[in-house]
Amino acid sequence: MVDDMIQPSFKIEPIAECSLLVTFSVNSKTTETEQRVGHISDAIRFHFSDVIMNVTPAYYSILVDYLPYRISESEFILKLTEVIKGAEQIGLSNTPYELITLPVYYAHETGIDIERFEKNGISLDELIKLHTQPEYTVSAIGFAPGFGFLSDVPIELSMPRHNTPRVSVAKGSVAIANTKTAVYPSDSPGGWNIIGNCPIPLFELDKLNHLNSEDSFKNIDSISKLKIGSRVKFKAVSRDDFLSLGGLL
């Protein structure tokens, strides 16, 4: 039933010459909000693929960059309002997010910050149990292409990020910073606490390099495994399984 689902009010504001910011005001569960932002972002991409450059969803907002020589600001605001209202009426029940299961090898050789948790009295086995227990939701994509912020880890696993980030964090590193958890989709600097490694590619840069700009925008879901609203579970795997899946040590 639509009445049982979150129905946020929203406002659309011009914030630059060719950018509109859609901001949602909600009073519901965070997970429902994230999934709805993702659902509406997909609707915007579908309906306006010929006039938009980027759609950037966040926790409670969507930034839309458009081509002003193809559509006027006033016309775009009117049409965008109609699409958002239509997407809300359809609701989330007709656009369920598939549960993505990510294998993780939790071990000291891949989880270089596990000792920080052990010093807090959390054993490796307990860490694995706690981290694999929840079903997470992608709250935002940022920092690096394909880097999904997942909410929220059990309170026992909350851990502040390092004061000084590492120069390089290995691709696939599974990490925690405060209450968030994430997987580094590529080698990059980072200050999160590393607890394991996922051998499954989350952002396939090779695909992006072989597509032109229009194709890459329309096929973003085939390039990035995670998007706003995606449901994620972590599954512990053995060292042998990790290596057989393409993991590197």
Rank of each mutant, 00 (worst) to 15 (best):
D3P: 09
D4W: 08
I15T: 00
S25H: 06
V26K: 10
N27L: 06
S28D: 15
T31G: 00
T31C: 08
E32A: 13
R36V: 11
I40Q: 06
S41D: 04
D42K: 15
D42A: 12
D42M: 13
I44C: 10
H47P: 05
D50Q: 14
D50Y: 03
V51R: 07
P57E: 05
Y60I: 12
L63Y: 01
V64T: 00
Y66R: 00
Y66K: 00
R70M: 07
S74I: 14
E75D: 15
T81Q: 11
Q89K: 15
I90N: 01
S93G: 08
E98V: 13
T101P: 05
L102A: 06
V104K: 03
Y106Q: 06
A107Y: 01
T110G: 12
T110Q: 08
G111T: 08
G111W: 13
R116E: 15
R116M: 11
R116Y: 11
F117I: 09
N120H: 13
N120A: 14
L127K: 06
T132K: 05
T132E: 02
T132G: 04
P134A: 02
E135A: 05
T137A: 09
T137I: 13
T137C: 12
I141G: 09
G142L: 04
F143E: 04
F143G: 12
G146Y: 07
F149V: 09
L150R: 03
L150M: 15
S151F: 13
P154S: 07
P154Y: 08
E156C: 10
S158E: 12
R161V: 03
V169S: 04
A170I: 05
G172C: 03
V174Q: 07
I176T: 03
I176F: 07
T179P: 13
T179S: 13
A182C: 11
V183I: 14
Y184A: 00
Y184M: 01
D187K: 12
I195A: 02
G196Q: 08
E204V: 15
L205F: 13
H210S: 14
E214V: 14
D215P: 06
D215G: 05
K218G: 01
K218H: 10
N219I: 01
S222Y: 10
I228F: 01
G229P: 09
S230W: 00
S230L: 08
R231K: 15
V232T: 01
K233T: 02
F234H: 00
A236G: 09
A236Q: 12
D240G: 05
D241L: 11
L243V: 14
L243E: 13
G246F: 06
L249K: 14
L249G: 10
L249S: 13
